[in-house]
């Protein structure tokens, strides 16, 4: 070891990797899902319990990375002793709860909710919703051709006010996820919020100003969580408009963002040698599905030049 103070030799590394002291596992909570006993950790929701029991529960406003707002009500289940149905995504499991996920009441509410959405919103780019409509035999047409659609409160045409992504509120089911992702659950930019009330409630910037005039930083974390395609990459929107959006010809490739040292996981969707969409896995430890403008939109130059 040198006497010179500016040199420093680190002490030899310990032979074993330090680990956090073992924490006691949370006490299990026993509940019954459709007659089958299930054990979930304390703090788990009924949705977790349904998953543990192998029951697929439709969800729309739920995302593992966001605070549940339980607004969409497609995940409702019947809880013994409760006056109304309860949202599985938000209700915490308590010992002894008896839950039915496919009772006539549950099926009816889920069916009607899917019909109400189908009669008021364009669900053409929401494949999960269309699948659930089939599962619950939902017929949105029951409300007739005169049924008001949700876009009455705002302009019905797609908002294309920037080069990166478009907003088509005719497809918006008001799940609040984009507001949460833009706000306190991820980005803390607060460019958008729910405005208006009732059937006229909608996602909006202040006074409905275009995105470039708002606080938007184009992280695209709202696109990441949108369940219906109301928020969409402009590349995808343009390809769809041209009739050239072709999921069968697309590949998904996971990679690491090249821009900075954080190391965000990117999932690149590639079609015809072009990156047409960039997402990040919600379970990626670094990103939890969130990216910045560079990771989200900064790779579309990769690809052949336009001829």
């Amino acid at each position: 070891m040198s006497d010179d103070a500016i040199y420093f030799n680190p002490p030899p590394r310990s032979a074993h990797t330090p680990t956090a002291p073992a924490r006691p596992a949370p006490a299990p909570v026993e509940v019954t899902i459709d007659g089958r006993p299930v054990s979930v950790p304390t703090g788990a929701t009924l949705l977790d319990a349904c998953s543990a029991a192998g029951v697929e529960t439709p969800t729309l406003c739920f995302a593992s990375t966001l605070t549940p707002v339980n607004a969409c009500r497609v995940c409702v289940v019947e809880l013994e002793g409760a006056r109304t149905l309860v949202p599985a995504c938000a209700r915490k499991a308590e010992p002894g709860m008896k839950v039915l996920t496919d009772s006539p009441r549950v099926r009816l509410s889920r069916k009607v909710v899917l019909e109400l959405l189908g009669s008021s919103v364009d669900l053409s780019t929401a494949p999960d919703l269309l699948r659930w409509q089939q599962r619950y035999a939902a017929r949105p047409a029951r409300f007739g051709s005169g049924a008001a659609v949700a876009t009455v409160a705002q302009q019905t045409k797609v908002k294309v006010d920037n080069a990166l992504y478009v907003r088509d509120y005719g497809k918006c089911v008001l799940c609040y996820k984009c507001v949460e992702a833009c706000g306190s659950d991820a980005q803390h930019t607060f460019a958008i919020a729910v405005a208006g009330r009732g059937f006229h409630a909608h996602i909006s910037t202040e006074a409905d100003v275009p995105l470039p005039d708002s606080a938007c930083v184009y992280c695209g974390n709202c696109i990441q969580v949108c369940p219906t395609g109301a928020l969409m990459f402009k590349t995808e929107h343009d390809l769809r408009a041209a009739g050239r959006w072709d999921p069968a010809a697309q590949t998904q490739t996971d990679t690491i963002c090249p821009y900075c040292g954080v190391g965000c996981t990117l999932t690149l969707t590639v079609q015809d040698q072009r990156i047409v969409k960039v997402m990040s896995p919600p379970d990626a430890p670094v990103t939890r599905g969130n990216l910045c403008i560079k990771g989200r939109f900064g790779t579309t130059f990769v690809g052949p030049e336009d001829t």
Partner: peptide, 14 residues
Amino acid sequence: SCGQCVPCRVGTVR
């Protein structure tokens, strides 16, 4: 209706 949940937001209109 405040417009938060689907059954009430759209149901009251229907």
